[in-house]
Simulated scan of single mutants.
Amino acid sequence: MSVYFESTIENHLAIAVTELSHADEIFELLYNDQENIGQFLGFVALTKTKEDEVNYIKKKMHGIADGTDALFSIIRDNHIVGVIDLHYIDSENKKAEIGYWLHSKFQHQGIMTKSVRKICEYAFENIGLNKLSLFADVENIGSNAVAKHAGFSYLATHPDYYVHRGQLRDMNEYYLLKREF
């Protein structure tokens, strides 16, 4: 696998800047685990072809160039197992949101918590951000646990925050400040 930039989390685990060459592997992960990943994430239903994934990566690359996004592949033993990103990067106010997903085969192993901690380190030390936010569906037990285990503080529950699969969903909001990291 080609990688432009990689940051090691621990032996056999790293995050790497997502490249177009990662699109096939990411699409296969999404396709093979779409019911699990799509349970709380609406973009999964919109990712029907490898070309859809290529277009998403291109869109994020434009965001990277504009300073509003950062997209990373989570790599374990030289294979992509998930994705993590910073979005809505606001350099003026020094804040951003974190989003992520992980194939179900790799869940409950601490991979996502470690990846979130690594992206926080990157955001605070490399981009100069001060505040990171993380939103999790109230019923997404795993994502809420990741937020807590990664050191985020609960801020609020936002009722009817978004529509997913035709239903209004509530979201928990968490935050982490640089000084608390």
Rank of each mutant, 00 (worst) to 15 (best):
S143Y: 01
V116T: 03
D160A: 13
A123H: 04
Y122W: 10
G151Q: 02
N130V: 09
E121R: 08
L155K: 13
V146Y: 03
K114L: 13
A145G: 07
A136K: 01
H149S: 13
G151K: 02
L102R: 03
A96S: 15
H164M: 09
D160N: 15
L155D: 15
A123Q: 05
S104G: 05
M112S: 02
A123I: 04
L155Q: 14
K105R: 12
V138I: 15
Q107P: 02
Q109L: 15
A145I: 04
S115V: 06
E139N: 15
V146K: 02
S115T: 12
P159K: 08
N130D: 14
K105H: 14
F124I: 10
L134I: 11
Y162P: 00
G142K: 12
Y100D: 05
E139F: 12
F152T: 03
H158V: 15
I111H: 00
M112Q: 00
T113H: 01
N126W: 10
H103M: 07
I111T: 03
Y162D: 09
F124A: 09
E97W: 01
A123S: 14
A147F: 02
S115C: 11
I119Y: 00
A150I: 01
Y100C: 08
L129I: 13
N140L: 06
E97S: 13
G110A: 10
S115W: 01
G99M: 00
T157Q: 08
Y100A: 09
H149M: 12
I111A: 04
S115E: 02
A156G: 07
R117G: 04
K105I: 08
N126I: 07
G128I: 11
L155N: 13
M112I: 13
L134K: 09
Y161C: 12
R117D: 04
L132W: 08
F135Q: 10
K148N: 06
E139P: 08
S115R: 00
I98S: 00
A156S: 14
D137M: 06
F152P: 03
D160F: 11
A145N: 13
S153M: 12
N140W: 04
V163W: 07
S104D: 11
H164C: 09
G151R: 00
Y161W: 13
E139T: 12
A96N: 06
N130Y: 15
K118F: 06
G110I: 05
G110F: 05
